[in-house]
């Protein structure tokens, strides 16, 4: 490497530059935080049901089979837009009913088809999940996914 670049110069560039990028990143992260809260997820209130639904989602680790907004495991369908796919995004009661029927029908037991386990959920849990998925579905994701298949 060039003689110009001594070890101590390389070190100083490393420390100085990294600090610079950390500061820029923090500034953008703060801005993104407010953007999420005030704009991209602001279309529907984050109710208690939504929060409860998220905790149910986590308690059963749905993320380790499904993707949600494209993140998670790749074993089962995308759920960030499932309420749109089911046509119940604007119908809370319908959303609950379809989801309730779905959960209770698992596992399908069909030979050669991937199985979703049976989860013991109360009505409150299922209402929460439906609200959580509807809430996720209304997030502004810059146009993603490309189509309803998710």
């Amino acid at each position: 490497m060039a003689e110009m670049l001594t070890k101590s110069r390389a070190r100083n560039i490393f420390y100085g530059g990294s600090l610079f990028f950390v500061v820029v990143f923090i500034a953008l992260a703060v801005h993104s935080h407010y953007h999420i809260v005030n704009t991209s997820t602001a279309g529907a209130p984050l109710t208690e049901a939504v929060a409860h639904g998220k905790s149910v989602w986590e308690r059963h680790s749905c993320i380790n089979c499904h993707t949600l907004h494209g993140e998670g495991a790749y074993f089962a369908p995308e759920l960030g837009n499932v309420m749109t796919r089911w046509g119940v995004q604007d119908d809370p009661e319908g959303a609950f009913e379809v989801l309730d029927a779905w959960i209770e029908a698992q596992p399908s037991g069909i030979e050669g088809r991937r199985q979703m386990p049976h989860f013991e959920l109360t009505e409150e849990d299922k209402r929460g999940l439906a609200e959580f998925l509807r809430w996720a579905d209304q997030t502004n994701l810059q146009g993603w996914p490309p189509n309803d298949a998710g």
Binding site: S18, F21, V22, V24, F25, L28, S32, H35, I36, S40, T41, H69, G70, E71, T139, N140, L141, Q142, W144, P145
Partner: peptide, 13 residues
């Protein structure tokens, strides 16, 4: 550090 942005395309950011 700023490359983290490749995960911030479609999650509401």
């Amino acid at each position: 550090i700023l490359g983290t942005g490749h995960h911030y395309y479609w999650i509401g950011t």
